[in-house]
Design a binder for these strands. Structure first.
Length: 988
RNA sequence: GCCGAAGUGGCGGAAUUGGCAGACGCGCGGGAUUCAAAAUCCCGUCCUGGCAACAGGGUGUGGGUUCGAUUCCCACCUUCGGCACCA
């Protein structure tokens, strides 16, 4: 999910150079007196790998300790791009690595895995450009990335590594798709249930089918449908096989439908709403996107809109992200209201409004251009204009629609409707500012109190009637806030909220409308016309086109090898999509039979079906799944990645994911990643997880209990006079501070500097391998954490790294002489040093707990600066190295091994985290500022005990020589004493 | 337009519940070491005035609450992020 667009390049040679260094060094401490980070870092990375230092014991296994509390820490799934990582990418990984090393030392059973989200368009495009199969390039990229992560010193459990492109992984992605296909959302229990249950209920006639194919309870039918048309619901037994199939398909959580989709001809594929920018272009590649109706796989995420919104209340996520999800789901409460047509007895127009209290102000109506009633109600004299308008609207691209947001357009149909509250005759218009996909595709327009209606009414000279009196003295025209009702008959004087309630009741009593909840969220478009994705476990009957899911026993459906991976792209937006899998002609054609459960089992050549079963010919589904599919559930596969019977064993899943209490969300204990996945990945994942939860496959209602958004690492970018970006390696800074100038080294040209996201496009990427090679991995880790708070975006500055490099060199030199001897003393620490030790343990412990790495490092620097003695007491030295070890693990391991000497047994990661005593964290004497009227006038030094006593503080402060001098001639009105902090004397 | 986050020295940032603003690091100035330089070490470094002690000002701007405000409240400005005809 890390976007490869922003990945920077570095010389490929260096990778190889480092790779062989990696295995060259002996494990035993070399005894050298220099901080030889290249040697130490390679040595310890090799040690961790060979000894599986960070392997996580599995519940039920002999080495598993049930007494330890569990902690599941997850990094967002990276996409292994061809150009590798830049220093911005590992920010979150370093943070979680430090956190998990720390929590492991504190006695937690920590799970911290890593893997690769390796399907998707970039791999496919790369493969197309370089003429090699996507699998080959993907595997090479994964190998590169794995090496890079190891060189960053990451303590992952490498035995749990996964890639979405492995058959052993994507068979379970396909399995989850089958769960979706074979389930429906049962409103009676507000959860997904197997489709077999729906069939059973229909057979038992607890449910019947109404006129539009929806199932309704058999009892109370007609009452459920308030508008009271008794269209003759049907029993299951009365339906034809074809009708039954249609009914089931209308309820499956995965279904094929002809819908207006985002078709991107340049990419040769359709895109989800979430993948289209608000300029109407593709999120990837910035190509134009067109609306067109296509038959595509959809996932019924809208059934979960309510729960996805509601359960945000139980997760520990940043409020900003929760808000973005709430906005995307877009829940609104309002009412549906029926307007009768003035000249047509049969039809009514149903509208959705969130402001039923403004019904008396409705002066016209608007239908979306795609609304089915448009053709029917339009009068002859207006027909020509309406048809033209509808045709133009239909052919507009997303780009055109958004480009014209300023100016309202529309045409009058010639028809009129009757406002149900006051029987006014109001005109019906068609306009593209009303969308078919939201609400009912029709609105009542209240120009006085809706901005869009107001603009439209002004342009077309439609009447504007005030029905809300603003609370303040604002102008009522275009006032959209709450207020008091006017011009609303018997409802005059009611406040907005109360009016809404009253009018909704009134509408329901008179069978004119009902209270309704609406969502902006649409169903998820789930198919892509690409090669490099998971094939659907779906076949189509070669003759009838009937759709069948494959039987679970047919999984995995392996992606076939083909010669030409290119999507069949076209400049022509009307060209039909042609998925590359169509080229695998042999793979596409299969034979099989339908089982009792309705799934299809395939027959290999020579195989025969069971007796009496008809053999049928099928075509395989040619679409593949979007990249989000694999990343929707990867956190579950880490739990038990080698399991061949299930995506994860039940008891293993329960151990890591189950909530400890009923009201908790359970799931991953800490999920760290960028905010760019606020809607897409995090919403899709939650949806899949809830389906699996409903079906009893997982034990937590939410996948990610706690989410933390890291900030971006920004970097300066330089542009020449034409605005072209200049590679940062070709830039020189001249002068200081405000007089600084930036010039191009190659030709001396003056450049302008700006701050942006690090990446290829701004030519400002810095490769971690370069930094590791020059300064060391530990220095890179410490620097990235020291730059500022994890959640903040901050600019990279290669110049500043020397500070942290100096710090680590100083650490080394404080404990090791130039001859390699240890500067450790077995004598106990003195009072001051003892207190410093406890104080630092406390600061680092609390800071790491809250992911405040920058201040934890500052505390360590301060402690080191205070250790300026010839020989450091052993207890102090050992504690310091333990505190440093999660942050700079290689250096700490090396020091630890040397400090332990012959007694050394294992990695410092196996040690426990040092404790502190609260009493030892306070200095023996405290300096207290004494203020007069809020200004510091003197300082007094008090023993800790005295500084905790308000009376004594006041006494000493008032007796202070400087204070008495300042107070002469003034009266003391009040003395404020804050124990151990300060004294403020109010005098005048 | 709507929603959200953030504005602190030359720079990155610190100040956990309202209690010494600027911890820590970079950079810069001075000194030591060196034939010299790099590296290293020591001292200084918010601004203004003063040789100094010290005085005054200071956390985007303007107001407010408080003995006391970077922190809380109101209004505004700027930057970044999200959404954008969702009735």
């Amino acid at each position: 999910m890390i976007c490869p667009r922003n990945a920077g390049g570095w010389p490929a040679l260096r990778l190889n150079q480092l790779s062989y260094q990696f295995t060259e060094y002996p494990l035993m401490s070399s005894g050298t007196g220099n901080y030889d980070f290249l040697t130490f870092e390679a040595k310890w990375q090799k040690y961790w790998l060979e000894h599986k230092t960070f392997r996580t014991p599995q519940p039920g296994k002999p080495d598993f300790d049930a007494a330890k509390p569990k902690l599941y820490v997850l990094d967002m799934f990276p996409y292994p791009s061809g150009v590798g990582l830049h220093v911005g990418h590992p920010l979150g990984y370093i943070a979680t690595d430090i956190y998990t090393r720390y929590m492991r030392m504190r006695g937690f059973n920590v799970l911290h895995p890593m893997g690769y989200d390796a399907f998707g368009l970039p791999a496919e495009q790369y493969a197309v450009e370089h003429g090699v199969p996507p699998r080959e390039t993907t595997e090479k990229n994964i190998a590169n990335m794995r090496d890079q992560l190891r060189r960053l010193g990451m303590g992952y459990d490498w035995d749990r590594e996964i890639a979405t492109t492995e058959v052993s992984y994507y068979r379970w992605t396909q399995w989850i798709f089958l769960q979706l296909y074979n389930s429906w959302y049962d409103p009676a229990v507000d959860a997904a249930r197997p489709i077999a249950e729906l069939i059973h209920k229909l057979e038992q006639e607890h449910l019947v089918v109404n006129f539009d194919g929806r199932v309704v309870p058999a009892q109370g039918q007609g009452l459920q449908e308030w508008y009271g048309l008794p269209p003759g619901t049907q029993r299951w037994a009365e339906l034809s096989p074809e009708q039954r199939r249609t009914v089931l398909d209308q309820h499956r959580l995965a279904y094929l439908d002809e819908v207006p989709v985002n078709w991107c001809p340049a990419l040769g594929t359709v895109l989800a709403n979430e993948e289209v920018t608000n300029e109407g272009r593709s999120d990837r590649g910035n190509h134009p996107v067109y609306r067109r109706p296509l038959r595509q796989w959809m996932l019924r995420i809208t059934k979960y809109a309510d729960r996805l919104e509601r359960d945000l209340g139980r997760v520990n996520w940043p409020e900003a992200i929760k808000l973005m999800q709430r906005n995307w789901i877009g829940r609104s409460e309002g009412a549906e209201v029926d307007f009768a047509l003035a000249d047509d007895e049969e039809e009514t127009i149903r509208v959705y409004t969130t402001r039923p209290d403004t019904l008396f102000g409705a002066t016209y109506m608007v239908l979306a251009p795609e609304h089915p009633l448009v053709a029917k109600i339009t009068t002859e004299e207006n027909r020509r204009a309406v048809e033209d308008y509808v045709a133009v609207a239909r052919n507009k691209t997303e780009l055109d629609r958004t480009a014209e947001t300023k100016e309202k357009t529309g045409v009058f149909t010639g028809a009129h409707a009757i406002n149900p509250v006051n029987s006014e005759r109001i005109p019906i218009w068609v306009a593209d500012y009303v969308l078919m996909g939201y609400g009912t595709g029709a609105i009542m327009a209240v120009p006085a109190h809706d901005t869009r209606d107001f603009e439209f009414a002004q342009k077309f000279n439609l009447p504007i009637i005030q029905v809300v009196k603003p609370l303040g003295d604002e102008d009522w025209q275009g006032y959209v806030g709450e207020g008091t009702a006017v011009n609303s008959g018997a409802f005059d004087g009611l406040p907005t909220a109360e009016f809404k309630k009253k009018i909704t009741e009134w509408l329901e009593e008179n069978e004119l409308g009902k209270g309704t909840v609406n969502y902006k969220l649409r169903d998820w478009l789930f198919s892509r016309q690409r090669y490099w994705g998971e094939p659907f476990p779906i076949v189509h009957d070669a003759e009838t086109d009937e759709i069948f899911a494959l039987d679970e026993s047919e999984l995995p459906v392996e992606l076939p090898a083909i010669d030409d991976y290119r999507p069949q792209a076209s400049e022509d937006p009307n060209a039909p999509p042609a998925p590359p899998l169509g080229r695998a002609t042999e793979w596409v054609k299969v034979r099989g039979y339908v089982t009792d459960t309705g799934s299809v089992k395939l027959l290999r050549s020579g195989q025969s079906p069971p007796d009496g079963v008809q053999v049928r010919a099928f075509r395989r589904e040619l679409n593949t799944m979007p990249q989000w599919a694999g990343s929707c559930w990867y956190y579950l596969r880490y739990l038990d990645n080698r399991n061949e019977q299930r995506f994860a064993a039940r008891e293993v899943e329960r151990y890591w994911m189950a909530p400890k209490q009923d009201n908790e969300s359970g799931g991953v204990d800490l999920y760290v990643g960028g905010a760019e996945h606020a809607v897409l990945h995090l919403l899709y994942s939650r949806f899949w997880h809830k389906v699996l939860y409903d079906l009893g496959h997982v034990s937590s209602p939410e996948p990610f209990g706690r989410l933390f958004n890291q900030g971006y690492i920004q970097a300066y970018a330089y542009q020449d006079a034409r605005g072209m970006y200049v590679d940062i390696r070709d830039v020189e800074e001249q002068g200081e501070g405000k007089n600084a100038r930036y010039v191009r080294k190659s030709n001396g040209e003056a450049l302008t500097r700006s701050l942006g996201k690090m990446g290829k496009s701004l030519k400002n990427a810095v490769a971690p391998d370069d930094i590791c090679h020059e300064f060391g991995t530990d220095t890179l880790r410490v620097y990235e954490m020291y730059m500022g708070p994890l959640e903040a975006s901050k600019p990279w500055s290669t110049r500043d790294i020397v500070g942290m490099s100096r710090f680590l060199h100083n650490v080394w030199r404080r404990f090791v002489t130039e001859d390699g001897a240890l500067r450790i003393d077995d004598a106990p620490a003195d009072e001051a040093m003892h207190r410093l030790q406890h104080k630092t343990v406390k600061r680092v412990t609390l800071d790491l707990k809250d992911l405040r790495f920058n201040t934890a490092i500052a505390a360590l620097i301060e402690m080191l600066n205070a250790l300026k003695v010839e020989r450091v007491p052993r207890a102090v030295a050992e504690t310091f190295v333990q505190l440093l070890s999660p942050i700079a693990p290689h250096l700490s391991e090396e020091l630890w091994q040397r400090m332990c000497g012959p007694k050394w047994k294992d990695s410092i990661a196996a040690e426990s985290w040092p404790d502190y005593e609260e009493a030892m964290c306070i200095d023996a004497e405290i300096e207290i500022p004494v203020q007069i009227n809020g200004k510091v006038r003197s300082r007094i030094t008090l023993p800790a005990a005295v500084a905790g006593d308000v009376k004594q503080m006041e006494q000493v402060a008032l007796a202070d020589e400087r204070i008495t001098r300042e107070l002469s001639g003034k009266t003391v009105r009040k003395v404020v004493c804050i124990p151990q902090r300060m004294v403020n004397i109010v005098a005048g």
